[in-house]
Design a protein around this nucleic acid. Structure first.
Length: 246
DNA sequence: GCGACAG
DNA sequence: ATCTTGTCGC
């Protein structure tokens, strides 16, 4: 019965977490088939969470933050932060294996299960169609999508300069419109650089794009990632104590 | 072979 | 991601 709302805690298990590049790639290939790119039957989104990780310039300490907002007011409802150590090197295409352990820890500490999670990075717009947003969506079994600041894979035509304008992000398209659509290049504010939106899990691209516009009411990036980004940096800097770790 | 490469 | 001053514009 507790689907989305009213749920108690985000339940996630990491199972044997990959330690090597080959293992990580194999894990993505094994899990990508489970991704669902359609909206859930129930649409109501009352709470939305943003997640992000801040890194120490030298050393391997990191701070992960999960911020839950009330979708309608964009007011903070709850936050959770974790100080941890980076166990996986940054590798383009495998960056979920570096950030997810800490993010999952932070999500577990939340008292409520958000109806949606917005990730800082790509979902399907990934070399193997399994970016961080897809991976987190599957592990948490919560609707997710990613909003990245730069393109990773795919081609696109710059969208018009007005807020709301967008163009498809495609791959395998040599100019004849026969490629596959892996995301959307969205202009969240008039005249700013566009962001790259792609589905994570249990959501459609159209819905993810609509949420991106709604959540980017005050800036180029969604309020969710802005809040999570800021909080993770404050915790890493020691100006705010983490709810987990020390 | 060479360069590119989410954060 | 992180390192960095000033600067242009609403």
């Amino acid at each position: 019965m507790p689907k989305g709302n009213g749920g108690r805690h985000v339940e996630i298990r990491l199972q044997p977490w990959p330690k090597t590049i080959p293992e990580a790639i194999e894990t993505q290939r094994r899990l990508r088939g489970r991704i669902r790119t359609v909206d859930d039957a129930e649409h109501a989104v009352r709470t939305v969470a943003g997640v992000d990780v801040a890194y120490e310039r030298d050393g391997d300490r990191l701070a992960a933050a999960a911020v839950v907002l009330d979708y309608a007011s964009l007011e903070v409802v709850e936050t959770s932060t974790v100080i941890a150590t980076a166990e996986f090197p940054y590798e383009p295409g495998l960056f979920a294996f570096r950030e997810l352990p800490a993010l999952v820890e932070a999500l577990r500490e939340l008292a409520t299960t958000p109806d949606l999670i917005v990730c800082d990075g790509h979902g399907l717009a990934h070399p193997r169609r399994f970016g961080l947003a897809c991976h987190l969506g599957l592990l948490a079994d919560v609707p997710t999508f990613g909003v990245a600041k730069t393109v990773f894979v795919g081609e696109f035509v710059p969208p018009a300069s007005r807020r709301g304008a967008w163009s498809p992000l495609t791959v395998g398209d040599e100019g004849w419109g026969n490629g596959e659509n892996i995301g959307a290049v969205v202009r969240t504010r008039d005249g700013v650089k566009p962001v790259f939106v792609s589905v994570g899990h249990r959501i459609s691209l159209d819905t993810a794009r609509a949420h991106t516009i709604t959540l980017s009411r005050h800036a180029r990036l969604p309020e969710t990632t802005r809040r999570a980004d800021h909080l993770s940096r404050e915790v890493l800097a020691g100006r705010i104590s983490p709810s987990v770790g020390r």
